[in-house]
Design a protein around this nucleic acid. Structure first.
Length: 592
RNA sequence: GGUCCGGUAGCUCAGCUGGAUAGAGCAACAGCCUUCUAAGCUGUGGGUCUCGGGUUCGAAUCCCGACCGGAUCACCA
């Protein structure tokens, strides 16, 4: 039983016996006691002041007195400051809490809900490599999946790969024209980067042609439409849709290169998927689903042949579902993907990790899926996160202002390696291979924490000129705290079986209390879809531990029962830090 | 213009389901390694919580209105 669960009925009894009224749960406000006052937990008594018809201070004192007299085992001391009743909870209670934490191997994990949640994230285009914006998406998606698993959901991580369309044809065309048969093997480039280069090349040549046409007197719109490269790309798309063997073979080959590149990037990021869908397989399903809806009278066809959904009753506009030439749009494909997914899994809740610029799209998708009879449609979750901005604004692929995911990861690991060079301890008795592995974990930990600690809904700023920190409120700080504990535990070797001390130092008590917060933190992170909640908690726990570690010796403590308690405490702090970081996809080094 | 989101220290961010004197980190300055890992600990300085009203015992937090910034409202994805 948590402290709150233990205390609430007691407060109710107190209020009832003192003032003869029944307090409801909402009136009982418990919060952590602020550091400047004595006590562990504070009851805000203002809600009872009117019932009691007494001054706040007096009400607080009366309730405090009642609790101490009637529940002295729990409430050791109290003090009343204005309307705040600060309670000091008996050491024995905290020690039993620590023992309870220690007894649970998966402390913090919530009961199985027997329900399935599908989390879609990443969703790359196959015409360019991943950049920092994708990194935020991937880290958030992976972490949300872990957090919901910890909240008792069965989670299926999925990815929808946008592998077809005009943008893919642009890369293919540029490669055919200017590539001279270049391959990842021949050039030594990662496949996704190679394709990305040709996507950029297309844009460059295309702009040239536009300029030429405009010099010849055409207006910009016409020039854009009539540039030979654009016409060729469109022709290629038509051939692709018609199943032209040459185009399809080229498409398959180039996409394979990209996938090999993505796989490497995903592996380094530490993210994974249980099931991958490809747009090239789902768009036809979408069309079929729209035709069905059309036949059922849910949609309507205009004179030019295009198909629309009327959403004016839902307060939205009309939405195009099929173009007049019969081809599908983004929405159509999402409907098709949803259909396949629902065929494959008994989805109870569907979560889309997609940037906030697509909020309108998902509002519409939700309504459409609901109309088409998907049970999860109405309550689908668009986990909408903010943009990553650079000091001079948004990242734009074409203007070369993107922060490449692979480059960034390289840089982080390099920095970690550089920093660890100065740390004598790291190098003692450690092979180069181990040192590299530590640098990888620490560099990636710094990057992941940097991104995940920000409230997902908010835009965040990344300044490429300033390197990401390794000190202070960072991933490495938490990893370091963990590594320190592991070092102590290694040296402790035989965990002495001494009885635990039954008296606590203030910093020990603070740490135990923090440990007891963890399950609630997991729940809140799940309810809010917020890895940042987990970051904040892990940081606070690490801070508490470092302060404890600084002030109190563990291994050199002469009193065996105190030593046993501190070891148990350290062990469980490490356990919870490890668990919390795992929810963020951050690995912990055993030493650093 | 309609809708949605944001505005907290020089910078990056917590706190937002109303509670005590608004917190961290970075940057600056001053201390702490003969002791379990100094990627650490301790301290100093730094604030009109964008502004104006309202709600009440109490507002950074809730409501209304301005202002500023962003997103979105495609036969783009």
């Amino acid at each position: 039983m948590t402290l709150e669960e233990t205390l609430i009925p007691l407060v109710k009894q107190a209020v009832h016996s003192l003032y003869g009224v029944e307090a409801n749960d909402q009136q009982i406000q418990l919060q952590k006691t602020r550091a400047e006052f004595e006590g562990n937990i504070t009851l805000v008594v203002f809600p009872f002041v009117k019932l009691a018809r007494k001054a706040p201070q007096q009400v607080a004192a009366e309730i405090g007195e009642w609790l101490q007299s009637n529940a002295g085992q729990l409430v050791a001391k109290y003090n009343a400051v204005q309307g705040f009743l600060n309670l000091s909870i008996a050491d024995r209670f905290w020690i039993s809490q620590l023992e309870a934490v220690d007894a649970e191997a998966e402390y913090g994990k919530q009961p199985d809900r027997k329900k399935l949640m599908m989390v879609e994230y990443s969703s790359p285009n196959t015409n360019k490599p991943l950049h920092l914006g994708h990194v935020r998406n991937n880290l958030l998606g992976y972490s949300i999946a872990k957090i919901q698993e910890a909240n008792g959901w069965q989670v299926v991580k999925t990815n929808i790969v946008n592998d077809r369309g005009i943008h893919i044809c642009k890369s293919m065309l540029a490669w055919l024209k200017y590539g001279n048969g270049e391959t990842p093997a021949s050039s030594g480039k990662k496949g996704d980067h190679l394709i990305g280069d040709y996507y950029v090349r297309f844009d460059k040549e295309y702009k040239k042609q536009i300029a030429e046409l405009m010099n010849a007197g055409k207006d910009e719109e016409t020039a854009k439409r009539e540039a030979p490269l654009m016409l060729e790309a469109q022709e290629m798309l038509r051939k692709w849709e018609a199943g032209d063997k040459e185009v399809r073979d080229l498409w398959t080959k180039m996409n394979e290169w990209v996938y090999a590149g993505f796989d490497e990037t995903y592996r380094r990021m530490g993210v994974s998927f249980d099931k991958i869908y490809y747009e090239s397989n789902t768009y036809l399903e979408g069309k079929a689903e729209v035709e069905k809806g059309l036949a059922a009278g849910q949609f309507y066809r205009r004179e030019d042949g295009s198909v629309w959904a009327d959403l004016t009753k839902d307060g939205l506009d009309e939405k195009l579902l099929l173009r007049s030439d019969g081809t599908s749009v983004y929405m159509t494909q999402d409907i098709g993907t949803a259909k396949l997914r629902y065929r494959d899994y008994p989805i109870d809740k569907m979560v889309y990790v997609v940037g906030n610029e697509q909020e309108y799209h998902f509002k519409v998708l939700s309504i459409l899926l609901d109309r088409l009879g998907f049970p999860f449609g109405k309550e689908l979750v668009h986990f909408s996160y903010g943009m990553v901005e650079l000091p001079n604004g948004k990242m734009k692929s074409r203007e070369g202002t993107v922060v490449d995911a692979d480059d960034l990861m390289d840089k982080m690991v390099e920095d970690a390696k550089e920093i660890s060079k100065d740390k004598v301890n790291t190098l003692q008795g450690i092979t180069e291979e181990e040192a590299n592995e530590i640098a990888r974990k620490v560099g990636m930990g710094a990057l992941k924490y940097f991104i995940l600690k920000v409230d997902p809904r908010k835009n965040m700023l990344f300044n490429p000129e300033e390197s990401i920190d390794f000190n202070g409120n960072t991933g490495p700080f938490i990893q370091y705290t963990y590594a320190r504990i592991q070092s102590v535990l290694r040296k402790a070797e035989s965990l002495e079986k001494s009885a635990l001390s039954c008296q606590l130092e203030e910093k020990e008590l603070t740490l135990i209390q923090r440990l007891t917060d963890y399950p609630a933190v997991v729940r809140q992170a799940g309810d809010d879809f917020s890895p940042a909640v987990v970051c904040n908690y892990a940081y606070a726990l690490a801070c508490d531990f470092n302060s404890f570690y600084h002030d109190l010796s563990i291994l050199n403590e002469p009193d065996a029962s105190k030593k046993a308690l501190r070891l148990l405490l350290a062990k469980n702090v490490a356990k919870v830090l490890y668990s919390a970081m795992a929810l963020l996809g951050i690995e912990m080094p055993e030493r650093m």
